[in-house]
Every structure is written in C-alpha cells, then in structure tokens.
Design a protein around this nucleic acid. Structure first.
Lengths: 232, 232
DNA sequence: ATGCAACTTGACGATCCAGTCAGGTTCCGA
DNA sequence: TCGGAACCTGACTGGATCGTCAAGTTGCAT
C-alpha cells in the first residue's frame, strides 16, 4: 500500500508503469498463497516465482528482498481488517449491525482465506512486523466501537457484555473457518468447506453473537426470548 | 508418545534410561518454545539445542531428524486436546458442564500457550502431519459430545444450537488468548496478559457460551432470563 | 525511427542449516 | 574392578536458499 520504491532507478514515478502494476499484483497474489501455506520462513522465493510464472530474479526487481515482499503482502491484508466495523454505530439497530459485521467477517474468511492465514501466522509468531498497526489503528478502532456497544447496553438495547472481548470472540469464531479450515473439515468429514457449510457456519456464529447480547435471532430455531425491557 | 527408537542400538529397552527420559523432556520443552515462535520451518535445530543447553549433535542422538522431533512435540500436545470433554455427559448439568469445559480450555491457553501455538501453526498450514488424528480421534470425540448437547436441547434443557459448530466456537474463543495473545495485548494496551486479564476473558467466554445455549450465567451481570420451561 | 528507461533473466556467490561421523566420556551391572 | 552399553560432541558435508549482477530485450515518448 505504501509507495514502494523499486530497485530500478525510479524518479517521482507516481504513474507506476502499467507493467509494474500488473507484475506486482501477480507476485503479491502468488506470495499470499505461498506464505499462507508454509509461513514466512517456509515459503521460498523460487516457489513464489514459479507460481507467478516468472524467474526468481524478477521478483527481486520488484521487491528488494523476501522481507519486503512479505510486508507488502501484509500491508495488502491489514486494510481488510479494519473495514466493516463502521456498521456499528449508536443509531444502528444492534441486531442488524452485529449480524452485518459477523456476515462481513465470514465473507472475508470465505473469499480470502489465504489472507486470513498469513495474518494469523504473523500474529501467532509475535506480530513483530505489525505490532504498530495492532497497537495504533486496530486498538483505537476497537476502543471506539466498544464504546458504542457499551452505550447500547446502558440503554438496555442489549444485555451487558464485555465489548472488547466480544470483538476477540467474533474475530476468533469467524476466522477459525479460514485459519483452521483443515480442522473444521476433518471434524465435519469433508475435504473442503462448501458453500452450504459456510452458510451454516455463518448462521451459527450470528446466533452465538446475538444470543450473547441477549438478542433474539431471526433465523435460528426457537431462540431465547427477547430481553425484558430493563429501562425505557 | 509412541515408543521412539533412538538411533543408538536399542534393544527392547522399555526402561528408557533415566538420562534419556530427562534429556528428551528438556529437548521437547525447548523445541515447543522454538517451534511456537517461528514455526516448523523457521525454528532451527541449533536454536533448540542452545535453548536446551546442549550441542546440536546431541539432539540428533535422541531424535533422528527435525521432523521426528517436531512430531514428538505434536504428539505431546495432541493428548491435551481431547481431554476435558468428558465433563459433557447426558446426566450433567449443562451450565456446569459447559462452564467447566470452557474453564479447562482457558486454563490450557493460560498455562501452555506455546503448545496451543504449535498446534495452531500446524493446522493453519494444512495439518498434514496430524490429519489422521483430526479425522479419527478428534472427530469421533466431537460427534459423541455433540450428541449429548443435541439431547440436552431436545429435552429443553438448553436452547437449540448447532452442537458441532459450538465446539468450533469454543475452541476458537478460548485458544485465541494463546494463539493471538499478541493481538489481544496490543488491543488491551498491555505487553502481556496478566492473571486478571485471563480471569476476565474466561468469564466473558463462559458468558458467551452459556447465553448461546439460552442459559443464565451466574457471574456476569444482569443476564438473559432463564429459558421458559419448554417441556417438563 | 530513435534512444533511453523500464523490464527480463540465466548464472553465480555467500550463507545457513540439517544431518553425519568418529572418537571420546560417563554410567551401571556383574 | 571391569567391560560394554549408553551417552556426548567438535568438525565436517551436501544441499538448499537468498540475493546479485551483467548482459540482454521490450516499451514508450519524442
């Protein structure tokens, strides 16, 4: 995402040549796949190159070193993580907003599982490269949205709940279908997750989140009764 | 766990010399730490050796190759994953049983975070080495316990819920405090998780699970009202 | 068309790491 | 005490990988 300065002499060069843009994106795509499968240390430049269909030396033309390529992949991914929280606002209907957020996270797990895995891998190994992002951007977004949820609770629109930890739970419950897909598949006795499985998973997580907030959930069977109106 | 045959000529040798047992456990401990921090490909035998306080060649005396050492670490961990589900039985009180299970999983995340991380790493990268375990042991245990939960639901003792996916959610929500500790810390603005944080996390996850099953939870503030007695 | 910058690539160097081995030391039963 | 098994270890090897480089080819503005 940050303007990367290629190793070749590059002036101001905002335009970023047509070829460059195309090659970079092909490389990033291949790199995401490879890093997702074997982690940063396990994935090799040769492997990425062959998956992208070009010689290894060409990778080093666009990305100085392996670490720079890896960071570029991460940069690409981080922006995805912040998105979608904007549905959580004071004025929104809690049930709709939470459902929409869960659905968005599940969609991300379904459509970009490799991105999720690269991110997970980085965090498990200490998040040394993205510590700043987590401490600054992410934590402030969470703090902000947690306030909204607390507000909902104090107005009696949802049951009281630890808002910050609720985010941890939502992330964990949704990302598990990307990061731990092989475990989920093994337990379900399948070789890969089909669309039906993901729909079912999504419904389940939504149910869990809504019930956690004392909200009735539309889709899922005889639900918990609605909150007794506490105030107002 | 499986009787490993050392490279040195070893007859029946069940007794497994005092020294051997001690060294193996020291090596396994160091290996778990190293593999947790950088994954299988990232961790080096030299690093493990120095952490265990012995020369690298000695590692190869006890474990033929890196892969064998890694598998030994995994073996050591897998048994932990099956434990504790036995609290979930037809005759148990659903709320107590689920609380106990969540508490056990949280305790594992707190006391053996590196074990959790090694496991997570392996699963993310496709679980090629433990696919058998997941498909056989784990999936049968889950199927068994899911039946119990379904039974509870059909008796009206808990709200209907997708039992198998509930396990996925419980695992994800609890293990996130080990695997994604650095993310949790960053968002909470701490450098490491203290006892108080884990107690709070545990209470939160318990609340989420109990409310998901339509059960009132003792500890956590004004909870959802108890299930209206559906039958019996 | 022309010339320069952007791009491509095969071959190579330096480093690192898993695994080996031969020769040594310690343990332990008889 | 003695002897063999278990254990230890410094030095080495072969293979793999990142990154470089110099000699090309292609794209594009004038």
């Amino acid at each position: 995402m940050t303007p990367r300065s290629g190793p070749a002499p590059q002036l101001a060069a905002r335009p970023k040549g047509r070829v460059r843009r195309q090659q970079e994106s092909a490389i990033l795509k291949a790199a995401e796949r490879v890093f997702a499968r074997t982690g940063f240390e396990g994935g090799t430049m040769t492997e990425i190159a062959s998956l992208a269909g070009l010689p290894k030396a060409n990778l080093h033309y666009y990305f100085r070193c392996k670490d720079e390529l890896y960071r570029a992949v991460l940069d690409n991914i981080l922006s995805l993580w912040l998105a979608e929280t904007e549905v959580i606002t004071i004025d929104a209907d809690p049930a709709s907003a939470l459902s929409a957020y869960v659905a968005a996270k599940m969609r991300l797990s379904a459509t970009r599982p490799d991105a999720s895995r690269v991110f997970a891998n980085e965090v498990i190994h200490g998040a040394t490269r993205i510590g700043g992002f987590l401490r600054d951007e992410l934590s402030s977004v969470v703090a902000q949205r947690a306030l909204v949820i607390d507000q909902w609770a104090s107005e009696g629109r949802i049951a009281p709940i630890d808002a910050t930890h609720l985010f941890f739970t939502i992330w964990a419950a949704t990302q598990t279908y990307a990061d731990f897909e092989s475990q989920v598949c093994a337990v379900l006795g399948k070789t890969r997750l089909g669309k039906a499985d993901l729909v079912r998973a999504s419904a389940h997580v939504t149910t869990v989140v809504l019930r956690s907030c004392g909200l009735p959930c539309a889709g899922a069977g005889p639900a918990t009764p609605p909150l007794p109106s506490i105030s107002h």
